[in-house]
């Protein structure tokens, strides 16, 4: 019985992992169909709560969602099963691509294709960043943090870890100062 439930968690998250392209936000529709509509593990509100929480916590959103839902179903074993399920399909696919790519990248047409693709990726990243900017940068204070983080990374090659810790500390200090006013 225990094993059957764990296998069910693995299978459900394998489906989600296989049919989610690009990770993150794009997994929400699949998550909804599998965990809310098919399995009835949770309702819409809880899914939205979990998704919001997953974005705030360290790590990949997909993995955080897997841990939250897996843990709710079958504690730590369920969480591990869900992580395995959601990662495994991409693990296999990328492994195959990694093995093949080094053989084909030297072909002129493949190299040209990737040169074009790099332009598309740069554009796609700009588009995503624009969306994040609108959400995260709301006033002069958040804009200042944005600029400082950008310059630290771009010009001074400061570790992102330090920037993130520093920004969190600044956020707490400013928040406290505002509360006293």
């Amino acid at each position: 019985m225990q094993l059957r439930q764990l296998l069910e968690i693995i299978w459900t998250f394998m489906k989600i992992g296989t049919l989610t392209f690009g990770g993150g936000y794009s997994m929400l529709p699949m998550l909804h169909r599998e965990t809310v509509e098919n399995q009835h593990w949770l309702d819409e509100n809880k899914l939205a709560d979990y998704f919001a929480l997953s974005q705030c916590l360290p790590g990949l959103i997909a993995v955080n969602m897997a841990v939250l839902i897996g843990y709710q179903q079958k504690k730590t074993a369920g969480a591990v099963a869900a992580i395995f399920g959601v990662i495994f399909p991409s693990f296999v696919v990328i492994l195959i691509i990694a093995m093949l790519l080094s053989n084909y990248i030297h072909i002129a047409a493949v190299a040209s294709a990737f040169a074009g693709i790099r332009v598309a990726v740069a554009s796609l990243v700009i588009y995503s960043v624009y969306g994040m900017f609108k959400k995260g940068v709301k006033d002069w204070f958040t804009f200042a943090i944005f600029v400082v983080a950008l310059l630290l990374m771009l010009l001074f090659d400061v570790s992102p870890i330090l920037v993130i810790i520093g920004a969190a500390v600044v956020g707490i200090l400013i928040g406290q100062k505002r509360a006293y006013r």
Binding site: A122, V129, F133, K135, G136, T142, M153, L154, G171
Partner: peptide, 23 residues
């Protein structure tokens, strides 16, 4: 919540730096 208010724009800044390198 305050920590995240500071953290979010920093993450956007870091990714923007990468975006500039990608371009």
């Amino acid at each position: 919540q305050n920590a995240f208010n500071g953290l979010r724009p920093a993450v956007v800044g870091l990714i923007t730096a990468v975006a500039i390198s990608l371009i």
